[in-house]
Structure formats: structure tokens, C-alpha cells
């Protein structure tokens, strides 16, 4: 396996800005986009959940066709991760701030359609940031694949019974090392997963099996593939470099930044996780000259 760890150049040639000057400029720009409460992301998270929940009574009462609700539910599941992602980074409110409860609330409830436990997501995502592209320690490294369709197939393969679960493995290791948060995350994850299967089973045996399949079970699988492809594979491909300025890339997606859920500018997120998703594009435009100087991977630009 060929992994290169690339660090920023520190010995700048005469006449060029030093590493410290570049870092200071980068931070000055980043700070402009960090701070104000990300209303867009909060409305997205809660509105998306309400929309998905509303599909159930609408379909069960015959008000809305299941065939219209199915693609809507799939969209809801695919959309539900990113607002929780902001909460994982405490971008709605830091610990001790008055709106901290809202940060945690959005984190917990927005991913209900995806059945992704918040504590698990937060712990594993922080390790992903710390060890991006490290084959042994990045919990998202399993998404590595030669091209996009192999990434989808790999993702489906990783969800088969008996396959090693990178998130579970990481939590277990932390829990065995005495990490109380990891222990709680395991319990919450177990409770949420068992609840999901219990609800699906109850719905199915109550005569709503097709509704459960097309509003939750199948949308969840499609959503997981979509999220894994656009949030993990595209921004980090080919996953063979580590280091702050090389582990994530800017890319151009054929169908635009909206279809890729704003992930074209994911490099900004890895450099400054405190910038909410809806401000990444503007921050990228301003940071771009600095990123070029840093030798970042600005593919397709």
C-alpha cells in the first residue's frame, strides 16, 4: 500500500510568504465564515425530518401515492446526514453555550431516517478528521475504490451480514480502553438499531410491509450508498495521501455541486470544520489562492 504523508512546505523561497503568514491569512478568511448560527442547516435538518415523518400518515391514509412518496423518502434519507454532521462539529452551539441543547437535538433527531446514532457518528467522524486516509485508523477508509461504481459495490459489500464493521470496531476499542463516551455510544447505537428493526417488524406484521420497505428500508440503503459515495469517496479519492493539505480534494461533479450535496468544496470542511456547509463555497472562492500555494488537490479546476 502506497500512502504518502504530505505536509505543507515550511521553508518558503525568498519573496514568498512564509508558512506562518499563509496560515494566518487562511485563518483570517476562515474566521469570516465561522460564527453566525447556521440557520440554513438547522431548518434543513428539522424540515427534512418533518417531511419524512409526514410521508407515513399521508401514505397510510391514501392521501399520497406510495410511488410518489418512495423517491421523496429516498431524498429525505440522503439529505438527513449533513445537518447532523454540523452538530457533530458543534457548529450550532459549542459545549456550554445557551443553544447547546439544540445542537444535540438536531444531531440526534435529524439522522433518524438513516438510523445513524449521533454519538457513534460524532466519535467516528472525529477520528476520520484526525486520521484521514490512514488505512488503519480512518474509520471511513473502507470506502476506498478505484472508481465510483466500485465504491457503490464496495459499500453494499460492507453492509452484508458478518462483514467487519469499522465503526463498531473503533467504538469497541475505545470502550475497552475505558472511554465512557464510547461505551454510551455503543449502548445508544444498539438501542437505536434494535428499535429500527422492531418498528420495521411491527409495521410489516401490521399490514404495512410495502410501506415500510419503500419509505424506510430501501430508501435507507440507497441513501447510505449516496452519502458514502459523495461524502466519503468523491472528496478523498484516491485516498493515498495524508496531511492537512493533501488528504481531501476539490473536484467538479458532472451534475453540479447541489447534486453532490456541496461536497465539491469538502476540502474547506477538512481545513476548517467550523465553517458550516452552506458557507463552504464562498469560503473556497476566497481561500483558493492560498490553497493553490499550499499545493492542494484542486482537481477539475
Amino acid at each position: 500500500m502506497n500512502i504518502a504523508v504530505t505536509e505543507p512546505v515550511t521553508g518558503a523561497p525568498a519573496g514568498e510568504k512564509s508558512d506562518r503568514e499563509l496560515a494566518r491569512e487562511e485563518l483570517t478568511i476562515a474566521r469570516k465564515y465561522i460564527g453566525p448560527f447556521p440557520v440554513v442547516m438547522a431548518v434543513w435538518g428539522l424540515g427534512n425530518l418533518v417531511c419524512w415523518l409526514a410521508l407515513w400518515p399521508l401514505v397510510m391514509t391514501g392521501t399520497l401515492s406510495l410511488w410518489i412518496a418512495f423517491p421523496l423518502a429516498t431524498l429525505n434519507v440522503a439529505l438527513c446526514y449533513l445537518p447532523s454532521h454540523e452538530a457533530q462539529h458543534s457548529n450550532y452551539a459549542k459545549s456550554g453555550e445557551p443553544l447547546r441543547w439544540l445542537n444535540e437535538f438536531i444531531g440526534y433527531v435529524s439522522t433518524i431516517p438513516l438510523v445513524l446514532p449521533f454519538k457513534t457518528a460524532r466519535i467516528t467522524h472525529m477520528d476520520h478528521h484526525t486520521y484521514t486516509n490512514d488505512p488503519e485508523r480512518d474509520p471511513d477508509y473502507g470506502v476506498k475504490a478505484a472508481n465510483w461504481w466500485q465504491a457503490i459495490l464496495t459499500g453494499i459489500g460492507r453492509r452484508q451480514p458478518g462483514q467487519p464493521n469499522a465503526y463498531g470496531k473503533l467504538l469497541r476499542a475505545k470502550a475497552e480502553a475505558g472511554d465512557e463516551t464510547a461505551k454510551r455510544a455503543m449502548m445508544e447505537g444498539l438501542a437505536q438499531t434494535l428499535s429500527f428493526w422492531a418498528i420495521l417488524t411491527a409495521l410489516a406484521w401490521s399490514g404495512y410491509a410495502i410501506e415500510a420497505a419503500l419509505l424506510w428500508w430501501l430508501p435507507r440503503h440507497i441513501g447510505m450508498s449516496y452519502i458514502s459515495l459523495f461524502l466519503s469517496w468523491f472528496p478523498h479519492h484516491p485516498m493515498n495521501e495524508q496531511g492537512r493539505y493533501r488528504n481531501t480534494r476539490h473536484f467538479h461533479y458532472w451534475f453540479g455541486n447541489v447534486v453532490s450535496f456541496g461536497m465539491e468544496h469538502h476540502i474547506v470542511h477538512h481545513l476548517h470544520p467550523g465553517i458550516p456547509l452552506n458557507r463552504n463555497a464562498a469560503a473556497y472562492r476566497e481561500l483558493r489562492p492560498l490553497l493553490e500555494k499550499r499545493g492542494c488537490r484542486l482537481d477539475g479546476v
Binding site: P161, W197, L200, T201, W205, A209
Partner: peptide, 25 residues
């Protein structure tokens, strides 16, 4: 309990969810 039931997950899923799904379909 999880360690005991876990390996039987696919069978439980087959009975708990797939069976009524197939019947209703």
C-alpha cells in the same frame, strides 16, 4: 443476548420483515 442473536440476524430479518413483505407484495 446480542452476541447470541446477532449471527441469526438474517434469519430474523427474513421472518420478521421479508416474510410479510413477500406475502403483501
Amino acid at each position: 443476548i446480542v452476541q447470541t442473536l446477532g449471527p441469526w440476524g438474517p434469519v430474523l430479518f427474513g421472518i420478521g420483515f421479508l416474510a410479510p413483505l413477500i406475502a403483501q407484495s
